[in-house]
Design a protein around this nucleic acid. Structure first.
Length: 928
RNA sequence: GCCUAGGUGGUGGAACUGGUAGACACGCAGGACUUAAAAUCCUGUUCGCCUUAAAGCGAGUGCGGGUUCGAUUCCCGCCCUAGGUACCA
């Protein structure tokens, strides 16, 4: 019989499902192993060929671990809250829950087609009320907790209240807002409920704070950075400005040091660890207060890592959003300052950071007093200073900082040399060498001496202190959206209160439209009769996408528990994730938030592990090839409904927008399909070239928002799941990103057919021999046993596939059909190509389904020993020859080998080599 | 801009710790089998030069330098691409 992949794959997928082959118990004699994938967002575009890359790798690993005798937890679920379903709802009116359900069904079908060994009885969905009940529950614990610096962990807010009541604010060292008050116990006890609550909010791990957002006045909504392109909204092309808004935040900064320390304890790729380290951005320095010249009771606090350069300060720069800007600005400068602030509002934070070439800024007219010299220092504002980093103000030292240097040159501000070795004619000199000059009491000191002396003096005078600053900011937790977890909070007398735990889940209410209200409130403001106890306003924002994904791996341990997010027993059994596979694009988002929530859950005694993911592998992204259309802009820079073809776009002012690759063929856009794709495009007009609309293209992340998704079902239809699985592994190193292409899939498919033919005599009947294997056959088998073992342990799946091809070619050449060889080969290949292997396994006379728990064959090095081995050496890097050596691959040291200098000399016509270079026991070069 | 990674034939990639660069595939070219097609098998395939052939010579791992007997691998400086950059997930 021929290799009928369709029949075989359907058969075994049904068998696995109906026999629940991969259902796993929370008790077992075997050691446990938890393999987790980053669960997908069920996008309307369906599962794309990029998702399975990681899933196949984790499936190969899971199946391998089962063969190695582990009780493997390998679950799957859906991160099903998110923006795209909501945008679809806005366009069509269809409830996101329906869209999501449809998408999940499609994902499940697609996943099933690939033949994964997931335990589907543990499936989870973050948008399921039975799931988000526990996301809300965790939020409540965070709201009810503060971070106690003394015990270095989160503790109940009741304990903080206790301390305040008995000892006042001095009794506790806790992580809190900058503007937290100081008070005695008596003062606290005299506070009104209102005052107490608002003070406690400054310590809660989930708290309200004002923060900046992208506001689109025309759409009346907040936009993600992704939805803003070149200062206008991607949808509609309306202007976007920065606006401040009261929002829920998470005090992740309280965990900064633990998040940093924990990185040393986990087995993650070093680049990823480095990214998190840099994101946390610990810097050791000092904070210094500069009093205002005309109002010495007010001061501007700056953070600096180079307090030693303080005598080089020639001006201060504030972020345009800094709260004191308006107060400082003089009447003469007010117009200029206001107009600069207006300009800044139009820029996104990223644009502000990216632009280092143009130097802009405005003098406020105000002065501060240098804390040591008392001299007047002018105060400027500039958009390169960000309100969210440090204190939103910097002391500018042009001689030591290039950015300050350029600023000083541009605006003719003094540049003060502070170290004797500094060379500052052309640029700033940030060296910490030499001795200080122009610096009063630190003159003549070295860097280390200066820093400690300065800090001592600043502290003594109460104008500064040593400080550790983290670049990481608290995470904004509110979203002005519909399709997310409702925040289980209502407002009484303007203060946030939690709903009762017994009232969870707080269900997402129905709304008539998924848009903001006319008064600019989030979509939940549209819900009618949605009041706590019929009276109090609920919080109208919902949780961000990362809420549900920050703890989900615990839910898989005990997916149907109604009493807890997971039972104590389940958590104790599975502990942490042993292997987590997912993309590095989550490096500073999901992977940081998850660590944060995990540490919090540990602090409150709900889980055991400080770190949730012991080992992590980044699967590289399979990138997509995106297509673009070019929207014509009007004079004000607003979007029109006319689109310019790629070749003509440079003649107009346009903005590039992603267009679905599925309505583009060879970069030519289908105009009809484009008009149907969105209501706003129905009347679209086009400027064509050669009667065609040609799209631009780019290689980038495959994602629903970029409309460049390719479906794995098409590949499976043509070649089968086993081919897809092996091909994705064959494409290249797991960690490496690569654009999707199907060149080369034929080779993998041919391999599987060849493999099948090893068992099928004359391409028809199943026929194998019970004869004893030959030496050559055993060698071939044991090479692959060892190779696959090695490759899987170091996640080098692509080289495995090549080795399989070599192995099968060798066995084909040997006309091998020996049971002993083939049976072991089936086991070794089965993690990669499970369907064909299950089929052959049963044909070999084994019980159906038993392959998944067979034993991985033992490697025997004896089969690889060779009597004679031809070893090439090169002379002077030019002449090459081959020398016959007696040595073995395994065991014997080369020093014992027959080759000696005398032997080598024979190949050099008697000339004596000057040098023989031996590396790892091999002669690699001979210098004559 | 900043952080992280990558750049090797026509293509995907291999070379694991500095030691024969191009394994294994795809594609392409030629051939076998076939009435034909599919499937399968065989040969060749980094580029250039030279040769009837066998063989040989030179260059070559993004670019420019450096270290080394020896560099895809290590160091310095560039260029390009991708991911992240805090409301995509």
């Amino acid at each position: 019989m021929d290799y009928q992949f369709k029949t075989i794959e359907k058969k075994w997928q049904q068998f696995w499902a109906s026999n629940q082959t991969f259902k796993v118990n929370n008790t077992s004699d075997k050691p446990k192993y938890y393999v987790l994938d980053m669960f997908p967002y069920p996008s309307g575009a369906g599962l794309h060929v990029g998702h399975p890359l990681g899933y196949i790798a984790s499936d190969v690993f899971s199946r391998y671990k089962r063969l190695r005798g582990f009780n493997v937890l390998h679950p799957m679920g859906y991160d099903s809250f998110g923006l795209p379903a909501e945008q679809y709802a806005i366009q069509t009116g269809q409830h996101p829950a329906i869209t999501t359900e449809t998408n999940i069904r499609r994902y499940r079908e697609q996943l099933d087609n690939i033949g994964f060994s997931f335990d589907w009885s543990r499936e989870i969905r973050t948008s399921d009320p039975l799931y988000y009940k526990w996301t809300q529950w965790i939020f409540m614990q965070l709201f009810n907790s503060f971070y106690n610096i003394a015990s270095d962990k989160a503790e109940s807010i009741d304990r903080l209240i206790d301390i305040f009541e008995n000892e006042g604010s001095k009794g506790v060292k806790a992580v809190g807002d900058e503007d937290a008050l100081e008070f005695t116990a008596d003062e606290w006890n005299r506070f009104s409920e209102q005052q107490k609550e608002s003070e406690l909010l400054k310590y809660r791990l989930a708290y309200l704070r004002e923060s900046a957002v992208n506001w689109c006045p025309a759409l009346g909504t907040v936009l993600a950075n992704d939805e803003v392109k070149d200062g206008v909204s991607e949808r509609g092309g309306y202007p976007v400005i920065q606006k401040k808004m009261m929002q829920w935040s998470m005090r992740i900064t309280a965990y900064a040091e633990r998040l940093l320390q924990g990185l040393d304890t986990i087995d993650w790729p070093e680049p990823l660890v480095e990214m998190q380290r840099n994101w946390i951005g610990k810097s050791v320095g000092a904070s210094v207060k500069f009093a205002l010249a005309n109002q010495p009771s007010e001061s501007i606090e700056v953070f600096t890592t180079r307090v030693d350069t303080i005598y080089g300060v020639s001006f201060l720069v504030l972020a345009p959003e800094h709260e004191l800007v308006s107060f400082i600005t003089t009447n003469e400068q007010r117009a200029a300052v206001d107009s600069y602030i207006e300009q800044t509002k139009k820029k996104s934070e990223r644009d502000r950071m990216a632009d280092t070439k143009t130097v802009t800024g405005v003098f406020t007219g105000g002065y501060a007093l240098h804390p040591l010299t008392g001299k007047q220092v002018p105060i400027w504002i500039a958009d390169y200073v960000l309100a969210g980093y440090g204190t939103g103000a910097v002391m500018a030292v042009p001689s030591g900082d290039q950015r300050d240097y350029l600023f000083a040159k541009q605006f003719n501000l003094p540049i003060i040399k502070i170290l004797d070795i500094q060379e500052i004619d052309k640029e700033a000199d940030n060296r910490k060498e030499g001795l200080y000059i122009n610096s009063e009491f630190i003159n003549g000191l070295s860097y280390e001496e200066a820093v400690s002396k300065l800090i001592a003096v600043l502290e003594e005078r109460g104008v500064g202190k040593a400080k550790i600053n983290y670049r990481m900011r608290d995470a904004i937790f509110g979203r002005q959206r519909y399709w997310g977890e409702p925040v289980p909070v209502y407002f009484k007398d303007g203060l946030p209160k939690l709903v009762q735990a017994s009232e969870l889940p707080l269900l997402l209410p129905e709304v008539d439209k998924y848009l903001p209200t006319e008064s600019g409130e989030p979509p939940l403001g549209r819900a009618t009769d949605w009041k706590y106890q019929g009276v109090y306003e609920y919080e109208l924002s919902t949780m961000p996408g990362w809420a549900g994904s920050s703890w989900y791996w615990y839910r898989y341990m005990d997916a149907h528990n109604e009493e807890a997010f997971a039972s104590k027993e389940a958590v104790n059994y599975w502990q942490a994730v042993d292997l987590y596979i997912g993309g590095s694009e989550h490096a500073t988002g999901h992977l940081l938030y998850s660590r944060f929530w995990n540490k919090f859950l540990k602090d409150i005694g709900k889980v055991n592990e400080e770190e949730p993911f012991k080992k992590l592998i980044n699967q590289g992204m399979i990138q997509g090839r995106s297509n673009f259309v070019y929207r014509l802009l009007d004079e004000e820079g607003g979007g029109t409904n006319t689109f310019v073809s790629f070749g003509l776009k440079d003649q107009y002012k346009t903005i590039a927008l992603h267009v679905d690759v599925n309505i583009v063929n060879n970069d030519v856009l289908s105009l009809d399909k484009f008009k149907q794709s969105r209501p706003e495009y129905a009347q679209a007009e086009f400027i064509l070239e050669d009667d065609k609309y040609v799209c631009g293209h780019e290689v980038e992340k495959m994602s629903k928002s970029k409309f460049n998704v390719v479906n794995p079902d098409d590949i499976i239809e043509q070649y089968g799941a086993d081919t897809l699985r092996m091909y994705e592994m064959f494409l290249g190193p797991l960690e490496q990103s690569k654009p999707w292409n199907t060149n080369g899939i034929e080779g993998v498919h041919k391999f599987l057919r060849k493999f099948w033919r090893l068992f099928h005599h004359a391409n028809t009947d199943f026929s194998i021999s019970n004869d004893a294997p030959t030496k050559a056959e055993l060698k071939s088998l044991h090479k692959i046993i060892r190779k696959v073992e090695d490759d899987i342990e170091r996640f080098s799946f692509n080289t495995s596939v090549s080795s399989f091809m070599i192995c099968v070619n060798e066995l084909t050449d040997l006309k091998c059909n020996k049971r002993d060889i083939l049976q072991d080969l089936v086991i070794v290949l089965s993690p990669y190509a499970p369907h064909i292997c299950e089929e052959l396994w049963t044909l070999l006379g084994n019980e159906a389904g038993s392959l998944s728990y067979a034993s991985y064959p033992a490697f025997n090095p004896a089969y690889l020993v060779e009597d004679e081995f031809e070893y090439p050496i090169s002379f002077n890097g030019k002449m090459r020859t081959k020398v016959k050596l007696s040595l073995s691959l395994e065991g014997k040291e080369i020093e014992e080998a027959v080759l000696t200098n005398e032997d080598v000399q024979r190949y050099l016509d008697g000339s004596t080599p000057k040098k023989v270079i031996v590396v790892k026991g091999k002669i690699v070069n001979i210098v004559i």
